[in-house]
């Protein structure tokens, strides 16, 4: 079966795409580290995806993410709308969607029909985003896949500030030098990020289901920290990294 709609999410950290069939199911998908030349990367990656799924070159493309205007798509839509559309397609329900991406985090309040009623995003600073986690994991020399076990083994969290990623980095260096255990610092880093994201949620109405999308949702430790900070269970959407691309594909279906 060939695809009928393509969605590209050209984010700041990763490039994502999905191809949908006529039933709205994902036929193929791809996640790759973002390259600076978005148009070139899109051309190469989409050619491969099209070939894999025998999808013709005139199938419409919807684009989202910071590189959305450079993808050469039929429609360019913001991540807020696309994540809400993708989430509604998966859940069929409204609620609150938390998307923590590479350079921004968003809290979207969706109506029962999936429409965006309100949203809040991190301000000019990247301290509430995936980049915060990425920088601090690098500084602690911890691999992404080892994070859940390390955080689970921490006796207690060591407090880390979330005012600024760069300041937090120097704070972590000092904590390591003072002999604080890596697991405790790691747990503190997660709590710090979660509290920053949860702070955005305070701008939205309480109640309703909370879903999570974006690359950071792949880390169980982060989801748990966010649920604790919000005081509510958080459901991670299937293939959380692809929710934006899914929404973009749905916009041209």
């Amino acid at each position: 079966m060939s695809g009928v709609a393509i969605g590209v999410d050209a984010g700041s950290t990763t490039w994502k795409a999905v191809i949908l069939d006529d039933q709205g199911q994902v036929l193929a998908s791809r996640v790759a580290p973002a390259e600076p030349l978005v148009d070139q990367q899109t051309r190469v990656e989409l050619a491969r995806l099209r070939e894999r799924t025998s999808t013709s070159s005139d199938v419409p493309v919807g684009a989202t993410g910071y590189g959305r205007k450079r993808v050469g798509a039929q429609r360019a839509i913001t991540e807020i709308t696309c994540h809400a559309r993708g989430a509604f397609h998966i859940t069929g329900a409204g609620g609150v969607l938390v998307d923590v991406g590479g350079q921004d985090s968003k809290i979207i309040h969706m109506g029962p029909d999936g429409s965006v009623l309100d949203f809040a995003m991190n301000d000019k600073c990247a301290a509430g985003t995936g980049r915060f986690l990425e920088v601090l994991l690098g500084r602690l020399q911890v691999a992404w896949e080892d994070v859940p076990a390390l955080v689970a083994s921490a006796r207690s969290a060591v407090s880390v500030s979330s005012t600024c990623t760069v300041f937090a980095e120097s704070e972590v260096i000092s904590l390591v030098a003072e002999g604080e255990p890596v697991e405790g610092i790691l747990k503190g880093v997660h709590q710090s990020l979660a509290s920053r994201v949860a702070g955005l949620a305070g701008l939205l109405p309480p109640g309703g289901a909370v879903y999570m999308s974006g690359g950071v949702a792949l880390g169980r430790a982060m989801v748990d920290a966010l649920a604790a900070a919000l005081g509510r269970p958080v459901t991670v959407l299937a293939e959380p990294q692809l929710v934006g691309a899914l929404g973009a594909a749905l916009s041209v279906r």
């Binding site: 913001t78 991540e79 429409s115």
Partner: peptide, 13 residues
């Protein structure tokens, strides 16, 4: 870029 994204998302809604 961030300002435009917020404005565009608001208009899309």
């Amino acid at each position: 870029e961030q300002g435009n994204t917020r404005l565009q998302a608001f208009m899309e809604s």
